[in-house]
């Protein structure tokens, strides 16, 4: 049941939502002020998605909602009723790393690792969007993810590699073959 103005009594306190996370459907009761980030970390124990600034400035909380990368800290869970969310935990399949995860390992695209889940989800979104062709464009379109260790050069290497091999990824639903 979705809350509507006609059913004002449903609108205070917890609200029922159905949300698919990493392929698994969840029926949940969420308070309206719960962000998607807090839902993932505090309610579902999916702590791969990181809370960095909690203000949309660092990108550590990046997840994919219906295939698009967004900052989960600036999104209310209740507004994502009916959506499909992919977090860092949902990228690997059958024990195989997602090609972007594998590229981050291969190119040593991190140091402390705190920004990495957000960087990887952002890179998956970037590749799906298909607007980046050059290194310069990768840099610009990864600018929503800050890395305080300064692993940027290797992050661009990893994304460039994964982008070049995207056609080989059977898990990318938008891959053009």
């Amino acid at each position: 049941m979705s809350p509507s103005a006609a059913d004002a009594s449903a609108s205070v306190g917890a609200i029922p939502i159905r949300i698919t996370i990493n392929g698994e459907s969840h029926a949940l009761q969420v308070e309206p002020w719960t962000t998607l980030l807090d839902l993932l970390r505090l309610h579902l124990d999916l702590t791969g998605t990181k809370k960095g600034c909690d203000h949309g400035q660092c990108g550590a909380c990046t997840v994919l909602v219906d295939g698009k990368r967004i900052n989960s800290c600036l999104t209310l869970a209740v507004m994502k009723d009916g959506s499909e969310v992919t977090t860092i935990e949902g990228l690997a399949q059958n024990g195989d790393l997602h090609p972007v995860q594998a590229a981050f390992v291969e190119y040593d695209a991190f140091q402390c690792g705190y920004c990495t889940p957000g960087q990887i989800c952002s890179a998956v979104g970037l590749i799906n969007e298909g607007h980046a062709q050059s290194r310069e464009e990768i840099r610009e379109l990864m600018s929503g993810n800050i890395c305080r260790c300064g692993a940027y050069v290797n992050i661009v290497d990893a994304v460039e590699h994964a982008m070049a091999h995207r056609r080989q990824s059977p898990r990318n639903p938008e891959a053009r073959s």
Binding site: S2, P3, S4, A5, A8, S11, V12, I15, E31, P32, W33, G56, N71, L74, T75, L76, V78, M79
Partner: peptide, 30 residues
């Protein structure tokens, strides 16, 4: 802060909700 939440089914309904000066429209939310 704590707040109540409503999903508007029409623009007219959203406008009616805005009669309350403490209500805010939310879309992207960023």
């Amino acid at each position: 802060n704590r707040f109540s939440y409503v999903r508007a089914a029409s623009a007219a309904e959203a406008v009616r909700e805005l009669a309350d000066p403490a209500a805010r429209i939310i879309a992207g939310g960023t």
